[in-house]
Every structure is written in C-alpha cells, then in structure tokens.
Design a protein around this nucleic acid. Structure first.
Lengths: 188, 188
DNA sequence: GTCTATATGATGATAGAC
DNA sequence: GTCTATCATCATATAGAC
C-alpha cells in the first residue's frame, strides 16, 4: 500500500474510532507511519484527507450491505439477512457516527457522502419492501419509504443502545423487535 | 443562577452541540461567563464537570419523556405521543449523542448515566407494551423488551438520518414507519 | 516525495495573589 | 470565591533543505 493509501486507511480508522474533532494530524501520521511533510504533500490538510477517507468508508459500507441485500430469498429474508449481518457492534457505524460531528455536518463536502450513503441504503430497503408488497408478502398499506427509514434508524440506533450499555446484545434485540414487527405486517 | 449552576448548564449545552472531546475548558468558561480559576474552584477538572452535566441532562431527558409516557390514552396512544413529541430534531439527543464519544464510553462514571437513562426509557416503553398486550391491544406473541429497544433505537437512529440529510422530516418518517408496524401488530 | 525546523494559537491545567 | 500569571503539551499547519 502506498503512502496516500495508508493515509486514507489510517484516517478511516481514526474517524471511526474518534470522529473528526477527536482526530489530529499527528495521530493520523503515526497510524499511517508517515512523516509530517508527507501528509501535506498528498493532501492539502485535515479536511481534504477526511473527505477522501469518508468517501472511501461510504463505498465500503455499500459494498458490505450489497452482499446481503442482493442475496437469495424473499424480501423478508434479505432484509433479515442484512439486519442480522455479523457486525462489530460496539465499534458503531463508520458512516452514521460522523453525523454526530458538528464540523462534518457543517461542511457540505464532508456531509454529502453521509447523506448519499444512508439515502442509498434506504432506497435499497424501500425497493425490497416494495417488491415484497407487490409479491403479496407484505400488507398493501405499508409505506415502503417510511418503513425503510425505520429499518435504517433501528440499525443506527441499535449501535447507540449497545454502546450505552457496553453490550452488543442490545443491538441484536432491537433488530429482533423490528423483524417481529415486520413479520406482523405480512399480508394475511 | 449561581456560578456552579451556570457551569453545569454551559457544559450541558456544549456536550450536546460538540460532544466531550470537542468541548474545551476555555469554551465552557466563555459560555458560562466564568473565569479560569472559578471553574477549577468548583470542579476538579473537565471530567468532573462533565459528569455533573451528563447526570443533569439525563434527568432532563427523563422529565421530558415522562410527560408523554404518563399521559392519557391507550398504550399505543402514549407510545405514539412520545415518539411524535415536538423535538428540535437536528440538535440530536442530548444523551444518545455522548455514546459516540470514546472518552465518555471508556469512563465508567460518564457512561453510567447513559446506560441508566436509555435503560429507564426502554423499561418504561416495555411496561406500556406489556400493558397493551395484557389489555388485548397488541398481539400476545410480541416481546415487549425487544420491541421497546426497537422503539428507542428508532428515535436514536432517526436523529442520525435527520442530521445526515440535514432534514428533520427524516426523523418523522422513520417514526411513522415504526408506528405503522406497531399498528400492524395490534391483536385481531 | 520525504524530512527536519519553525510558528501561532489552543488545551487543560496549577500557583498564588486578592 | 475569583482573578491573573504561568506552563508543558498538542493542533494544524508552512518553509525550505535533501
């Protein structure tokens, strides 16, 4: 991995662990094993490097989610597979986490990948729900766009519960509750 | 309001806006209009003051939530009233926000109020759900403890979606989806 | 492309006078 | 209880040599 790639990968890790304000150029350089001048050769500064790292993390999230969303089975099965995917729950979400950073949401180039990624995820889930409704799997009065937002929120909020309790099981139980409710909305 | 109270109130605001790592003693002193030495007279340092502020914010959240949870109507009505409560959505949750701060979750005295508060909220919602099941309002096979976690997660995650999109309506739609699913789990 | 030196301001406090 | 030094360290770079 070359220098620029190591800087991006190191910044991705630190943003995930400590957020934007909590991550210093010094820490990035140590994590990437790169010298002071080298970082400023490849990027204009912290916001520039953060932008590259956030876009990379957004792409990583899409790739991971696609694996389950594009999988086999009914709409319900694929949604369940996505929600129950094996996660390092206590680390939180590499993308959602950044919404808590005031400097990130205040900077359009840094916030845009967050909006696009969570929007993409919501649309994928809404598509599956709409498929399920069309196939008679779910009740026809379900609003796929609203429920898709609910499911994304359960994942993001599940991380919050788990970190507050220092217990990954909180995430799993929040997801179980959501799937139980979704099962109740099956047609018939 | 005396000096110590102004410090606590200022710290509460800053923790809500910028989190723990993003909040400096200097910023606190300016917000509270209090001098350098004065802050260190009342509190041993930033963690001490943060502890007092977090416990206060936790109490504030409980008081606000109780208003709707203790209100009139059926279990479903009271849950809906809580979820639809008027919120300054883009500010996020004063308590849940802190779960993203590595220094907070790593410090037992700072994490404890988060766990207690979200645990309290979950228990209140689980109690309402159990009431609703006993009254024949919800299906008997619903697990109140899991679904209560789902509802708390929808609120916490709804803030994430809204901040990512810079649009409070994302929160409202996530909540609408959750209530639609809960309505589908009504008995009969 | 990478390295070392240098710089300004902020961070998180402590000391001691008033 | 509050105020004004003072302090070591870190944050976020810029400059210029190699």
């Amino acid at each position: 991995m070359d220098t620029a790639e190591r800087l991006i990968a190191g910044m991705q890790e630190l943003l995930w662990e400590r957020g934007y304000v909590g991550t210093s150029p010094r820490a990035i350089q140590q994590r990437a094993d790169v010298g002071q001048g080298s970082m400023y050769h490849h990027f204009t500064g912290k916001p520039d490097l953060a932008g590259a790292a956030i876009r990379r993390s957004a792409a990583d999230l899409r790739a991971l989610a696609s694996a389950e969303l594009d999988g086999p089975g009914s709409a319900f099965d694929r949604i369940a597979a996505y929600l129950r995917r094996d996660r390092d729950v206590l680390r939180g979400c590499r993308v959602g986490r950044l919404t808590q950073d005031p400097d990130v949401v205040a900077t359009p180039e840094l916030r845009a990948p967050l909006e696009e990624t969570l929007g993409w995820l919501r649309e994928r889930l809404a598509g599956l729900l709409a498929e399920g409704i069309a196939a008679g799997e779910f009740a026809r009065d379900l609003d796929p766009d609203d429920v898709a937002r609910t499911l994304v929120a359960v994942v993001q909020g599940g991380y919050v519960l788990a970190r507050a309790a220092d217990d990954p099981d909180e995430f799993r139980r929040a997801v179980n509750g959501a799937l139980a409710l979704l099962a109740a909305a099956r047609s018939e």
